[in-house]
């Protein structure tokens, strides 16, 4: 088993799972019903994408080889049970989640939730454009399937950034705060982890494309990026399992049932 490849698949799955979980907390709390539904739809897409990645990772992790067993153990999981998508989501501890730090940041107000989605969807779109061509055909297939959904998320979140930034004084201020809060978590997206280098993820041009698009929309929204945006201190570590304090709480809620009643089923 190619452990770097499996780690990368887990990284992709964890990122979409955690963002889905965060967004889903708006269910029943959105500012208007239609937008509540929009955000829960987006959560559902992201959760489905996470499932596709986990199912694929689980398939690769069920090879009966010692190196595979060692790898499973290194992620703090039992080797005597069959790995499934549920085990990957529910039986892994914080240190073994490899999601981007951006996705675990708090929902904050509507502006911060929108901006988090916008920054990630833009990145996801350009990344998956490249992943569609990845030599691993299943990664390529999941990316090609997901990007159609991401296109909706991208348009929805971008339009909201413009609407709120160029809206009232209050909504403008909230969007600007959201940019200042979340910008330090964007650098990590473009900093390849060891496993990404191993599976030859092509980062070339990705940051420029993303930054150009983000800059242009932020400008349209009459907002501004932080001063000297290239020199802002960037938090890193999510891809290696070193997280902000928020992930522990997210997993506590997400995994509660399986931790309290292992193997519980419908």
């Amino acid at each position: 088993m190619n452990t770097s490849l499996v780690k990368y698949i887990l990284h992709l799955g964890d990122t979409t799972l955690i963002l889905a979980q965060q967004n889903s907390k708006w269910c029943g709390h959105g500012p208007v019903l239609e937008q509540d539904i929009a955000l829960t739809n987006i959560s559902l897409d992201l959760l489905g994408q996470a499932r596709n990645f986990y199912q694929y990772a689980a398939e690769l992790m069920n090879e009966n080889e010692k190196s595979t067993k060692d790898f499973i153990q290194s992620l703090g999981m039992q080797t005597d049970e069959k790995i499934t998508e549920d085990i990957l989501a529910y039986h892994r501890k914080e240190r073994f989640f490899f999601n981007l730090l951006l996705t675990e940041q708090p929902n904050g107000d509507w502006g911060q939730t929108i901006l988090r989605q916008f920054l990630y969807s833009r990145f996801q779109y350009y990344l998956y454009e490249k992943l569609q061509e990845h030599p691993d055909t299943q990664i390529a297939a999941i990316a090609a399937k997901s990007i159609k959904e991401t296109t909706y998320h991208l348009r929805w979140s971008s339009e909201w950034v413009i609407r709120l930034g160029d809206g009232t004084a209050e909504s403008h201020e909230r969007m600007q705060n959201a940019i200042d809060n979340l910008w330090p978590y964007t650098g990590e997206m473009f900093l390849p982890a060891d496993f990404e280098a191993d599976v030859k993820i092509d980062f070339s041009g990705l940051k420029n494309k993303w930054l150009d698009a983000v800059t242009s929309i932020v400008k349209q929204a009459t907002l501004s990026l932080p001063e000297n945006e290239n020199k802002v201190y960037m938090h890193t570590g999510g891809k290696e399992g070193r997280h902000t304090e928020h992930l522990g709480y997210i997993l506590t809620e997400l995994q509660y049932m399986q931790m309290a009643f292992p193997g519980a089923n419908w």
Binding site: E34, Q35, I37, A38, N41, I42, Y152, R155, W156
Partner: peptide, 8 residues
């Protein structure tokens, strides 16, 4: 009314 509806 909305690009997102009762199902995906």
């Amino acid at each position: 009314i909305s690009e997102f509806g009762s199902t995906a």
